[in-house]
């Protein structure tokens, strides 16, 4: 395997969980719900996926379990913030803490157990293409799904009527409500979708990235996903670019160190974050674009005046 192939394959591995979780969060935020519980939902997905894959021997059942666990973890959040109109920031933080703790408890029996690794699927013919074959067509199903999912989300948000309704709910819930859109229903679905995506991201961690269960193994990736959504100014295309940029800088700095480039490692370690901030600043200079895309009702509680 060529060096560049090896590097790009590692970058894809690093970027995929971020992309998945951020994709779900993007939809939730477009509907006006700021869910800071991504980290918690992600780790619930990770532990559920590991447990089921370990018990059944099937990584695919593990993936299903991860998605289900992420979605299930988002339900109490959805109920509290949408039906009970609690503060979204506080409830999201609580969800993260709950997820980290609960997953530790559930995962206790699985510490130190050998994992089940999801194997890549080579697409016959295409994976033998020179230069790009191995990178593009020899991935596991979750990687393919992550890109496909993003495309679907983009299409849904900007090319369908339902997507327009969802964005309307996020931009002005009162207007959407007046037009007869069920704000609560849309938000419930968006939050659950976000949870399912975070759960899938978690499944990727415990089945592909590091096929094992260790407590706290998400190690802050849920937070990076939340930041990526802002970074992308709530646009799916930019999200893809952001996740891969972050992954690329992360991996390249490790390679730079291994190759003996003499740059202080603390600086290299902070590079992914620095790069993200710099790009964020550059993007923010275009105020109209940011304003146009940021959901105006993000984080605001909706109480229909009957």
């Amino acid at each position: 395997m060529e060096m560049y192939e090896a590097i790009i394959l590692t970058i894809i591995t690093a970027a995929t969980p971020l992309l998945l979780a951020a994709c779900g969060e993007l939809v939730a935020e477009r509907a006006g719900v700021l869910n800071l519980g991504v980290e918690g939902m992600m780790i619930m997905g990770a532990v559920a996926a590991f447990a089921v894959a370990f018990s059944t021997g099937s990584p695919y059942l593990g993936i299903a379990a991860g998605i289900a666990a992420g979605a299930a973890a988002s339900l109490p959040f959805a109920f509290l913030t949408i039906s009970m109109v609690t503060n979204q920031v506080a409830t999201g933080l609580a969800l993260t803490i709950l997820g980290l703790g609960l997953s530790g408890m559930i995962g206790d029996a699985y510490i130190g157990q050998p994992g089940v690794k999801l194997t890549p699927i080579s697409i016959e013919g295409l994976s033998d293409l020179p230069y790009v074959g191995k990178i593009l067509f020899s991935q596991d199903v979750i990687v393919y799904a992550s890109v496909l999912l993003l495309l679907i989300v983009w299409f849904f948000l900007f090319k369908t009527r339902a997507g327009l309704s969802l964005r309307a709910v996020g931009d002005s819930h009162s207007s959407a409500h007046a037009l007869g859109v069920s704000v609560r229903k849309v938000r419930y679905l968006a939050v659950i979708f976000g949870g399912a995506c975070a759960g899938l991201a978690g499944a990727y961690l415990s089945l592909v990235y590091t096929p094992q269960w260790t407590e706290g193994m998400t190690a802050g990736r849920g937070w990076i996903a939340v930041v990526l959504v802002v970074f992308a100014t709530w646009m799916p295309g930019r999200l893809l670019a952001g996740a891969y940029l972050f992954g690329a800088v992360l991996i390249l700095q490790l390679h730079a160190q291994a190759a003996g480039v003499n740059i202080p490692s603390q600086f290299l370690s902070s590079l992914p974050y620095l790069a993200t901030i710099i790009v964020l600043v550059l993007i923010s200079r275009n105020r109209t674009l940011v304003k146009k895309n940021s959901p105006a009702c993000l984080g605001k509680p909706f109480v229909p005046d009957v």
Partner: peptide, 27 residues
């Protein structure tokens, strides 16, 4: 000996990435 500093005590993903980078560089 090739040394890679990850600036964390515990991050399975990043530790795995560092291991992959090192192996790709010939260790």
């Amino acid at each position: 000996l090739k040394v890679v500093w990850v600036n964390t005590w515990f991050d399975p993903g990043k530790e795995a990435d560092a291991a992959k980078a090192l192996i790709d560089q010939g260790v």
